[in-house]
Design a protein around this nucleic acid. Structure first.
Lengths: 204, 204
DNA sequence: TAGTGAATCGAACGATCGGTCTACTTTTTG
DNA sequence: CAAAAAGTAGACCGATCGTTCGATTCACTA
């Protein structure tokens, strides 16, 4: 994502400056929309990003474009995290899944955790025509496909349904963790995740 | 909830008229806040309820009071539904839980389903000081206690954690059903619910 | 029947929303 | 060095937000 400042002359107009207003806008919008919700004012984002009003509309066309781009970037980052966590589990699909959920389990412990940013945005953005909904749905579908692939590789008898089960445990645990963290939903989910994974054993 | 119009003279000033502005406001706010989200304008609620602006502020003090009251009423109604569903299951705690989840499973199939109204409101209302958050948390805790009680009666080895598990499956399935109903989350959740319940069998 | 409180309409409040625009400064580039 | 592009500052727009309030109508009851 970071390009050298010296680029082909045929691409000069589009060469991204390092840490320009665009990046600052994305960073500020990312933090504020998650912490305060999707209804933060444009003014608050501009102040936090220390960027002129005009820059927002030149780069993103409006608030809608900005928050959609924020979610797209969050999606990329999150999926990279998933891929790394799976890879850390080695070759056995069951161990890969365990490795993934070990990472997921720690997320709600972070200070300022407010639930899954995608679920939150999906529920908060009332307008069904908002382009962010497509980004969110696509992200969730890729995650489900990822889970389903591992389950299939592990020999689970119904990888499609089991993928939905794991997805459902993730979203459910995130929602509970956001409002009632004292119920320790991650631990409760972990036991069920293990049940689902264990159904994929050749012996099962 | 429906009182006769002829009441004790000592209570005349507080006698609720049948289908007055208060009821119409609650009904309209209930439908609109669920369908359009908690950010519907006061004007839209007033128009739908066919009620004067002033009446809202006289009865509920403001939008905050109105939506809080709406959630409180929804909580009562929902818990009545749970109690009935459990009772329909008879005496065996496991059958009572199965009866409850059989009812819950059908809810997302209703047209216009948009997820759990409590989870949605909790995630949508950005202000952590909003009184609705307390109503929501209290409702969810009562539901969890209900589940835990049945699990304990069924002899589950860890009814507290299992209660969180069931709660988590409910919220997770609701969230997935709201945005991606084609993944049939209710069916996926059902299998896990059965696993949790079966852990409560004396044989297990 | 006179009185009283509730419900009504509708104007208006200040604040904030997202978005547009002009003018000036900085940076980059040919 | 000069021109062009990008960024900044800030006023301004119409719309909408939740809220307040005066004035009027209506139903019930004492």
């Amino acid at each position: 994502m970071v390009y050298s400042q010296i680029v082909d002359t045929t691409n000069t107009t589009k060469a991204p400056r390092s840490e320009g207003p665009r990046e600052r806008l994305l960073r500020a919008a990312d933090e504020l929309t998650y912490r305060e919700g999707m209804h933060v004012g444009v003014d608050a984002i501009l102040t936090a990003a220390d960027v002129a009003r005009r820059s927002l509309y030149q780069h993103f066309g409006g608030k809608e474009g900005l928050v959609t781009e924020v979610l797209a970037k969050t999606s990329e980052r999150t999926e990279r995290l998933y891929a790394d966590a799976l890879a850390a589990g080695g070759d056995d699909p069951r161990e890969r899944l365990r490795s993934l959920f070990a990472v997921l389990e720690k997320i709600p412990d972070a200070p300022g955790y407010r639930g899954c940013p995608f679920v939150n945005a999906d529920l908060t953005l009332a307008d069904p025509a908002h382009p962010a909904h497509d980004v969110i749905r696509a992200h969730k579908r890729r995650l489900r496909a990822l889970l389903e692939g591992e389950l299939r590789a592990a020999g689970h008898p119904d990888p499609a349904m089991a993928g939905v089960q794991l997805q459902l445990l993730i979203d459910g645990a995130a929602a509970v963790a956001a409002s009632r963290p004292d119920e320790r939903p991650a631990a409760a989910a972990r036991a069920l995740v293990e049940l689902v994974i264990s159904q994929a054993t050749p012996a099962g």
